[in-house]
Computed example of a mutant assay.
Amino acid sequence: MTTSLRKWDSDPVLTVEHLTMRFGGLVAVNDLSFSVGRGDITALIGPNGAGKTTVFNCITGFYKPTTGMMSMRPRDGSVHLLERLPDFIVARKAKVARTFQNIRLFSGMTLLENLLVAQHNPLMIASGMTILGVLGIGGYKAKEREAIERARYWLDKIGLSGRADDPAGDLPYGAQRRLEIARAMCTGPDLLCLDEPAAGLNPRESAELNSLLLSIREQDGTSILLIEHDMSVVMGISDHVVVLEYGTKIADGTPTETRNDPRVIAAYLGVDDEEVEEIEHELDEVTGSEGGRA
């Protein structure tokens, strides 16, 4: 990907500027700036404790940052400053949806019901806050049909349409992960934030996840920001990778650029700062020898 084609520079759906989050004397995120390109899959990676989930919590309104600005630009052309909005407005108006590290499905409800819960707000508005829904008049019936159609679309997309009436808790782990992503997509987001979606998945399930996320980007036009430790997922599907260490950005670029960055290698290997130059020198030697063979 050439610089001129980098959507995170030319057409960002989300721009984070100088984000800092402090908890007392602890600086969890330190002066972080990055963008998510419209239609891109952007990975936010780093060792444990790097501040990745804290960034997600700031973007989605669970935390109010100490300083900084986060601008979300949905497809309707509006601009929302996320640091000023409560979490439910971030989801409803700014069109940002998320999943969590731990699965948070309603295990006793059916798969279909879980996806209808995600569409609770538009259904409540159409029902006149229950009165029109009880009477079955107004636009509620049409809205209800639309919600069911959307839910069935996503069940089909994740390969679970045959289990629509089964309890969500009866699904295997990988299927529950996919259902959680489908539930987030039922809110109609322009930005989907996924917190370690491949955690606990076997290789086959990880491959299915990759296919689903690529389909969400290409067929549904939704931008994706994900936190992930599975490098096969990150390097396999990401357009853009941002790397954090101790709350500070140390790399920002394409998967190839970040994979070869000596600071990233040092962060993941846990080496001291003085060893970074040695790693960089070794990388240069490897690159030079590969160029000589070519």
Results as ranks from 00 to 15, higher is better:
K7F: 08
R217F: 10
D9C: 00
G291C: 01
K157G: 00
K143N: 14
G200P: 03
E113W: 13
T258Q: 09
A266F: 12
H80Y: 15
A294L: 13
V90K: 07
K95M: 08
S238D: 13
S215W: 15
C193P: 03
I237T: 15
V96Q: 06
M70E: 06
G61E: 02
A94D: 10
G136H: 02
L123T: 02
L85R: 05
R22C: 02
L132T: 01
M69A: 10
E208N: 14
L5M: 10
L214R: 15
A207I: 01
C58F: 03
R150C: 12
V233Q: 11
E205T: 04
D239L: 12
G49W: 06
F106P: 02
R38N: 02
M21C: 05
I227R: 06
H281K: 14
H18E: 15
G37T: 02
F100E: 04
M21G: 00
D230E: 10
I265G: 05
E290H: 13
V13S: 03
K7Y: 10
S10H: 11
L171E: 08
T130K: 01
L209F: 11
H240W: 13
I125K: 14
G46T: 08
A207T: 09
N202V: 01
D220G: 06
G288M: 07
M185W: 07
H80P: 06
P122G: 01
L26H: 07
D195S: 00
R152D: 14
T99S: 04
L194H: 02
E208T: 05
I181K: 08
E282F: 04
L32H: 09
D261F: 03
A28Q: 04
I103C: 04
E196I: 04
I59W: 07
D239M: 09
I250V: 12
R259D: 09
S33P: 07
D273A: 13
D284M: 11
L225D: 11
V276T: 05
M69P: 00
E282D: 13
L44P: 06
T258R: 05
L44F: 07
L81M: 12
Y246R: 06
G77W: 15
G39W: 10
K64R: 15
G24M: 00
L171K: 06
H120M: 12
T42K: 09
T248K: 14
L209G: 06
P189G: 03
L191N: 00
L201T: 05
G221C: 05
T99Y: 05
H18N: 15
C193R: 05
R145I: 04
T99G: 01
G138L: 06
Y63F: 12
A43L: 08
R204V: 10
G108S: 14
L111N: 09
N210H: 13
D284S: 10
E149A: 15
L209M: 13
L201W: 10
F34T: 04
V79Q: 15
M21Y: 14
V233T: 11
D284R: 14
N48W: 07
I279P: 03
T130F: 09
L191H: 03
V16Q: 04
